[in-house]
Design a protein around this nucleic acid. Structure first.
Lengths: 219, 219, 219, 219
DNA sequence: GATGAATGAGGTTTCATTCAT
DNA sequence: GATGAATGAAACCTCATTCAT
């Protein structure tokens, strides 16, 4: 997620304004979806003219990607905090799960934006987005697991990249279950409990048990 | 997914035509997404007039849901086959994973339709869709796991519904990784290999190991 | 209203079927208006196929006109009954007013059809319709008044045709006030009473008084 | 007829443009009728794009109502002028009739719009329209008559509201007879003269005589 | 006589983007 | 820098009418 997708003029805008535009944009894209979100409406809600919006962003897509980048950065920073600690991998895992639950509730719209792009139909855009978003996260997971593997903290017959992949699948699904309408209902159908009523501790404990063997099982 | 979303006239159409319309519809919705899919284009590709299309389906949404129902039925039938066997749960799991891989390749568009609805933003529709689609699958998983639990084939400190939920999260993520552009790239970023080049056996083995403790771990 | 606007096949249909088609047609045109009425819906409600409908009527307009003719004939017959009596003109007037009130309630849909055509925008069609419908009624009024004039029952400085015109204006407005949504509300705004709650006798009395001078005033 | 049915953007348009749009709109709705009038055509004739039309009016119906309001205001203002004078009621009546004739010729399209809504089939809309349009006129008539009644200028056994109602029925019918195709032909059938050839004085005189007793008759 | 599947032109409405001021 | 009026392509949906059976 390196490439900037806004025009120089956006840099020159006041922080307050930048903040507002992205906040409103995230809100709108998250609740309406990319296609149904209306850039004129976003401009109006953000208190700027549509003309100025186009001085800041060349296209609707650019605005969307910039909103997305902002959301992803916040999630990534949180993950960073956890992953750079010296905790044992099992402790890290617990922290990550717990943080995932909390963040999903606190930053629901960022997760919804993320969910939005997982449905991207244009192959080129999908690839670019995936590269920008997944590379950083995956690297952190893979590195952590590889380190644990070196320390013999993890069963040795598991491929660390596959391990990271499965782990992130579970976390991603959990995020969506906290934030996206379809996934929320699905969570309720499976567990019998609305996700907002669900005891967070229960989720953390159960998920940890579920993946326990990957960390501790020795042949 | 009980209620029919097509008009009686559609029942009276030839099987060949029904087939064609749904096939084209699935293709179009899967590749374009719901919003960008164009009913007039679907009608033209299916070789019927737009007027007739509306004799068959009252709205674009009805056509979409009918396409979806068809796709889901096929996936559900396949799952049924596996789940009603007497195999031990670990064998079932292996079969399900393997079938998931195969089906995802063979029926990519059905999975893409499924992916499409996971992004549904309208809460009411999202709930209806989730109920229609997830109930059947979840019931099968939960039942199988509960039976295994009764036979002591599974660690007893795991909630069967949570277990089923985590399991399905992994399978669902796998399906999308085989079929949806964003998830495919993500798969490659994590594993280092394009999903089409990936040895299916490797995926099955690694995923089985990942979830092994859930099935075998005893305190 | 001489010209027949249906095909020969309609004549050959059973009376029951003819009845049904016109009844449903009148109902539909009266409640939906000409433009929004749907000929396919009329056919379905009447229990015949749309194909057969077009065997009976060449166009939607022809069906409408045939429905209209039927409605007008019934109203005209009732008027005939009154006008051919030997009553004094003032008695006739009272009878006509009273009959107008009753008929408007009993045959609301016929009146609504009549109201529908008073808005006809095509000059040629408007003329044809007016000729077909108004000629018969106007002749009756004018003749009656002329006879009364000859007998000196009516003030002599009034033109009988103008007299008839004004009289019919009042009766027509009354009909619409009993049957058409806009006119009904207008009636309530003027009189303060919903037309269904209004005492019929009150209407008859007041209207008779209103036009009294035309009949009795002598210079 | 209080609530505004246009968007703020319409207020900001130049007077010339507002004028043009409403003028063209009135013309189009008056000659084609609501259903057959085409917004795209109106926009084109008014020299603006269809997109801008929808910046001014949210729906076709809103455009129609705004056109209607404009037409009604002009008619209402004219009536105001007459009614607020101190003339005796018989003089007022004469003036109103004469003005009605003139206005109907000069502002035929306004009257045609009015005629259009008297056929409204949707009960809720019909009521709203009637309230917006008839309340003001009826109040003026009823007040004037009640005042005359107090001054004993009018026969006392007539209900002023009924009186006003009958009076307006005659005037309304006259308006339509000058402007709407069906009513014009009907006028000719009754009087034997095309309304454009008819001497206005003759109409005024005859109508005054017709209603004379209401004003002058004493038991 | 009777059916109803089939057509397709045409209408309303949306919204990303441009550009003159 | 900032505005917001203006554009117009494109999408969904309706329905009178035809015609093969």
């Amino acid at each position: 997620m390196i490439e900037k997708r806004y025009k120089d003029a956006f840099d020159r805008a006041s922080d307050e304004r930048k903040e507002k535009i992205l906040e409103i944009g995230i809100e709108e894209f998250a609740t309406m979806g990319y296609e149904k979100a209306n850039i004129n409406v976003i401009a109006k809600k953000a208190g700027i003219s549509i003309g100025l919006m186009y001085k800041y962003f060349a296209t609707k897509e650019d605005l969307f990607v910039t909103c997305l980048q902002r959301g992803m950065k916040i999630l990534d920073d949180a993950l960073d905090e956890i992953m750079k600690s010296d905790d044992k991998i099992l402790i890290k895992a617990e922290k990550v799960i717990r943080t995932t639950c909390r963040h999903s509730k606190a930053n629901a719209n960022y997760i919804r934006l993320y969910n939005e792009i997982t449905g991207e139909k244009n192959p080129v855009r999908a690839q670019q987005l995936a590269e920008g978003i997944e590379t950083s996260t995956s690297t952190k997971y893979i590195t952590s697991i590889a380190q644990a593997l070196a320390k013999d903290d993890v069963r040795s017959d598991l491929d660390p990249r596959m391990f990271a992949f499965f782990l992130d699948n579970l976390l991603m699904s959990l995020q969506f279950s906290y934030t996206c309408d379809y996934y929320r209902k699905r969570f309720e159908i499976y567990t019998g409990v609305d996700v907002d009523e669900m005891d967070e501790e229960q989720v953390v404990t159960q998920l940890l048990k579920f993946i326990e063997s990957a960390f501790t099982f020795k042949k």
